[in-house]
Amino acid sequence: MTKEEIISAGGSKVAAKPRLLLDVNMHYCPGCSHGVVHKLVAEVIDELGMEDTAIGVAPVGCAVFAYNYIDVDWVEAAHGRAPAVATALSRLNPDATVFTYQGDGDLAAIGTCETIHACNRGENIAIIFINNGIYGMTGGQMAPTTLEGMKTSTTPYGRRVDLNGYPLNITSLVKELDGTCYVTRQAVHTPAAVRKAKAAIKQAFINARDKKGTSFVEIVSTCNSGWKMSPEKANKWMEENMFEKYPLGELKNTVNPK
């Protein structure tokens, strides 16, 4: 059946580009997880009626142009400083729902200090953290979350812990801080995972709106260009390697405890 036939038979549209995702080609590589997460953020903002009140804080990294894709007000932060920028936006604009969207280099290397302290103060913000274990924008260098043995352009023979230290599990660290109310680790590699990730992002935005403290949503992601794999293989590699160090699931939820 064509879409017209389905509609005339009483059917409906069940999936489409989110209204708040701007109609432009995103600059991301084919298969990049960023696109999926952008889509979820746009859907969540729309579903929660936050188009007029949401303020996004974009990072430096692949998502630096996030402000070109989601139709809300944005502030583009200096590298790593998004949680500090969001802190001020949230405190000075109490009616706004403020979120940051950051990669692993931005959030867990250069911005570790701002991340830890914003979470520890319990800033009423949602932090969306894309962890693909690599610096994508600058061409595939080692990130703080790069796995042991993983090859990058600055660890061409694989990450060695004696030289480069251990992969940083920042999400587990953030869970321990009293200021966080919701800490979860998700992925977007399957339809089921996408649904779960969306629910998590939605919860984070609700918490930020309701001033419950800091919500932290890690999305374990792929960087197929940086990893030098097809998108499909990258998803498989992520399942087989990333999930061991960064297991999916809810780490903390003081708002809706199970």
Partner: peptide, 26 residues
């Protein structure tokens, strides 16, 4: 008026950047 002791001078100036971006006198 919001008053906040930041975790560093770097964080403080970026808070100013954020606040100023929203039109506030910071």
């Amino acid at each position: 008026m919001v008053v906040l002791q930041a975790e560093s001078e770097v964080a403080a100036i970026n808070m100013v950047y954020g606040g100023a971006s929203s039109g506030k006198a910071v």
